[in-house]
Simulated assay, not measured.
Amino acid sequence: MQSSESTFVAVSRHLVAGLDAVEFAERLSAQVARRIDRLEVSADAIDFAFSTSVLALQAHCVADPEADALETWQATVVAMQLGSALFAVTGTSEGTVECFINGRMRTIKAIGPQPYADAGNWLLAFWLAVICREQRRMTELCEIPLEQLRSPEGEYEEFYYHWVDVQQSYWLRRPGLVDKLISTIETSNPEVARSLPRDLLQGLLYPPIDLFYNFVRKNEAGFGPALAEALNLHKGYWTLTEERAEDIDGAVALGPLAMACLAYDGKLPIGIESPFIPKYLLEHGWLGEFPT
Results as ranks from 00 to 15, higher is better:
222 G>V: 01
143 E>K: 14
265 D>Q: 08
141 L>R: 05
280 Y>H: 15
34 R>P: 04
146 L>M: 06
225 P>M: 00
186 E>G: 01
281 L>M: 14
248 I>A: 07
81 Q>H: 01
15 L>M: 15
288 G>H: 05
153 E>I: 04
288 G>S: 05
152 P>C: 09
110 A>G: 13
280 Y>N: 14
282 L>P: 11
112 G>A: 03
278 P>S: 11
233 L>H: 07
222 G>Y: 00
98 E>A: 06
216 V>H: 10
171 W>C: 01
234 H>E: 12
271 G>Y: 05
42 S>I: 09
102 N>V: 03
212 F>D: 02
183 S>C: 13
60 H>Q: 14
140 E>W: 06
172 L>K: 03
22 V>C: 08
19 L>F: 09
45 A>G: 08
269 P>E: 00
249 D>T: 12
286 W>K: 09
58 Q>K: 12
273 E>Q: 12
176 G>R: 12
278 P>K: 05
150 R>V: 07
179 D>T: 10
175 P>E: 12
285 G>D: 09
119 A>G: 15
229 E>T: 15
59 A>M: 13
196 L>T: 15
202 Q>R: 14
17 A>P: 10
85 A>L: 03
251 A>R: 14
123 L>M: 12
3 S>M: 10
132 C>Y: 02
93 S>T: 06
98 E>H: 04
201 L>G: 01
206 Y>I: 11
111 I>S: 04
196 L>G: 02
122 W>A: 00
17 A>N: 10
83 G>S: 02
102 N>Q: 09
25 A>C: 09
254 L>F: 08
221 A>I: 09
79 A>S: 14
59 A>D: 08
2 Q>C: 05
211 L>V: 06
28 L>I: 07
44 D>M: 08
225 P>C: 00
169 S>P: 03
48 F>A: 10
161 Y>V: 00
31 Q>S: 14
254 L>S: 01
36 I>K: 02
181 L>C: 00
56 A>D: 12
131 I>T: 14
